[in-house]
Write a protein that binds this DNA or RNA. Structure first.
Lengths: 211, 211, 211, 211
DNA sequence: GATGAATGAGGCTTCATTCAT
DNA sequence: CATGAATGAAGCCTCATTCAT
């Protein structure tokens, strides 16, 4: 089949080797469209504007490519989150901001959102560890905020930080999942991040001290 | 759902022709072990104790079998949940009981839990709607409890029921996911359902009126 | 698959065992519709109003059933042809009548025609001999007419009877094939047998003495 | 027709990539041996000296391969016939030459003959049109010769050209079929084309003006 | 004799991966 | 480094045939 050079192929004109990143980006797109197991290497190569074989110069095999793609996307997300948190002090505000970042990041990139909600944990189970560490890292950020809050006396001391972190993450995560599965997403009239306050209002109330 | 070859096939009175259910159960097991896309029809047939071809007397193709399996398991779960709720009145207690049922059901059947956490939403996205209706049904149960609570004045009136339902579900769901992904599960010394109170304590606090 | 009892099934009410013939008829129909190799035993059984397994009480296997079906149909055709020829004397008229019978028989039963034109020789090659003998028999009838004609001096003596027989058969046969392949057949306004004289005019001229 | 992966694949200059034609030839052989529906892709691949999967680089599926094979063979036959006819003038001689070419071509390649006699019309009915156009083309050649003859006054004006063409084709075709079905073919002591004059003698007499 | 649920061998097709250019 | 034609293992599914009822 004569491959029609995709848009990405045009970019290869510019220069030497952004190929690695192009492949990674293409992978995320394709995974979002077809899901992990229905993603074909040939399609990723096509969309990245490289030959099938080229993939194997950068990745050992399909699984590693897909894992690297998810890892990479997640990594960039964490980085942004972390630096954003440094700018505020109040634990409550930090929590709010994390929720916002989460919803903002995924709400702005539907492909990424699909991959995170439907493929990430799926893959976590069946493809070894990969971003497991990153997930742990994400939880650690949440937990440290909660701990700060407890120490500052703004969060209840009688709750498990781990459980609370899961509640927080679960609530936000579930909002995203619903957004993905529903077709209301076609309505570009509301952004996922606009739900931040509603979610935070509940979770925050659940963990705050009854001052 | 899939058609049975004839009603006679359903006679589970003796032990012979419960093939339909045996195939369904085997499917759940295999999906839990290998994931949706790595499940091979031959293995399901083998584990159900039937020939490969027999599968196709009961199901049109592999996808329909897998979807039926997930559907069926989810359906049974909903039934149990619903009947259990009828036995209590207090909305807070109802919420607690739902969380318990959720954690109890999945904590007792690891295969089922894996399928629900890693395959269900995955499939919801890539295999059409199927259990989407069931998920909606589940949320409806939660929402009606929340509504009762608001009307009874025990839950805050200033929060969105939909958002609150997602927070509740998300929190419980996340607990299960973590349980699945962690390897502590090997420790059979603690049951997932024992986390019920910790989770409920937070979410309930978040939605309760500040009496 | 719940078999919907076909029309044929109703006929089984009458009595004991016309099953054999019913199966044979069903086979011809199904072969005409799907071709030899795409004919499924289950469909033949369904259309004959019997169970799949019943086929095997009457025929050793699928191939024997199909061969028997073709054989039987051909046999009936030959019988009719033979008795019809006995009623005329003139070799030229006999030839004309054979052409007419051929075109009449197949033109009246499209299923039969399809089977004869597309499956008979196909099968002759790939399924052993079966009706080969019947074909030979058919040619023998033609040849004996030609011989009579030569002896009576109405047909040229300088031509090979075998070759002439093939020319006659080939011409008529080709007319039928064209009729099958074309879609003009939908026009029920002309009958295949109406072409008799046109064909015979040519072939007869070719074999007649130039008296 | 099937697409080649790239023009480079067509370079039959060296011996490497005539794969497309090799597959086509292998297909004809295998079809001749086993018939259309008993031809296995694996055997064709094996005989063409390529891997099973390679077939699918050149053809969309089994049916398209088989149809392309028959088409291709027929096409080459027509080409040869056409150019041969240009070399003679007399319509009677043209007809003789067509019969000769027909018998010569198939008599020289038993595999091809089997495919043409047993599979071509079979397929025409059950596999869509494909070479139907080619058949029509063949008939057009015959018809134009007959028309020339009528205009030149050497062929009777009172016969239908279409019918006459079918008689001609039918006669020649039937000779081939008989040759295929008989086992005398094992006798390589006579060539099918040696029957040309006998056949032509009859058909020509049938269409000639009785000068 | 009759049934039809069950069997399981076998074929088409896909697609990750390799390697000669 | 890059290519992409070629490979071939592996899996879904069909359907002729059997056999317990």
């Amino acid at each position: 089949m004569a491959k029609r050079p995709s848009q990405a192929a045009a970019r290869s004109a510019n220069g030497t080797s952004d190929k690695y990143q192009r492949i990674l980006d293409a992978a995320i797109e394709v995974i979002a469209e077809h899901g992990f197991f229905h993603s074909r290497v040939a399609e990723i190569a096509d969309r990245a504007g490289v030959a099938d074989g080229t993939i194997y110069l950068y990745f050992k095999n399909k699984d590693e490519l897909l894992m690297a793609a998810i890892d990479s996307a997640f990594h960039r997300f964490i980085q942004r989150a972390r630096s954003s948190l440094d700018q505020v002090q109040d634990p409550r505000e930090k929590l709010r901001r994390m929720a916002f970042l989460h919803l903002e990041a995924l709400g702005s990139n539907r492909s990424l959102a699909i991959v995170f909600q439907t493929e990430l944990r799926h893959s976590a189970k069946f493809l070894g560890q990969f971003s497991h560490n990153l997930l742990v890292e994400y939880f650690d950020v949440i937990k440290s905020v909660l701990r700060e809050g407890q120490e500052a006396g703004v969060f209840r001391a009688d709750i498990s930080i781990t459980i609370a972190a899961h509640c927080f993450f679960g609530a936000v995560d579930e909002i995203v999942t619903t957004w993905i599965l529903s077709d209301r997403d076609r309505d570009h009239d509301y952004h996922l991040s606009s739900l931040t306050d509603s979610v935070v209002a509940i979770v925050l109330k659940g963990v705050e001290t009854g001052s």
